[in-house]
Amino acid sequence: MNRLIHLFKKLNYPMPFGHWIIDLILAIPRIICGLLLSFFYGADKFGMPWTAEDRNLDLFEVIYWFPQDVESFGGVFAMFPVFFAWMGAFSEAVGGLLMALGFQTRIAGFLIVCTMLVAIFCQQWNSGLWGMSAALGFLWVGIYAMVLGSGRFGLDYLISKKWKS
């Protein structure tokens, strides 16, 4: 149990840079991409409190067409389409919000990276570079959020400071 908690703390310990300006500059795309993912791409297919009413989605409910879309990817996605659709939509809607807040940033970044890799290779591959540019953008931001954590501008930083003291 203690090992798990230790690992969890380690996982969420952000890597602040020498000067706060570097953290601020890196936080801007992380926050913008997180909010875009959560409030637009994610909320379009996953029931969140801010999902448009005409979508008729309950809380944490994935939109009806998404599992069918995921099933068409084949392989393991065709075996568990509901699970992967739910995880993908959750990663965008909830993971995006966590990434924007800088809370559990590495876990959120990991979820977003996985989702974007699936989107790029299984969904957008035939759409050409322009078609996959949005997913690529989120992938890059997800990668650095996963590696660096939240930096100074995130809840993880405040929490880790409390743990330290």
Binding site: E61, Y64, F83, W86, M87
Partner: peptide, 11 residues
Amino acid sequence: CIVCQNCVQPT
């Protein structure tokens, strides 16, 4: 439970 229950929008 959350993932396995009816979490897809019904039509």
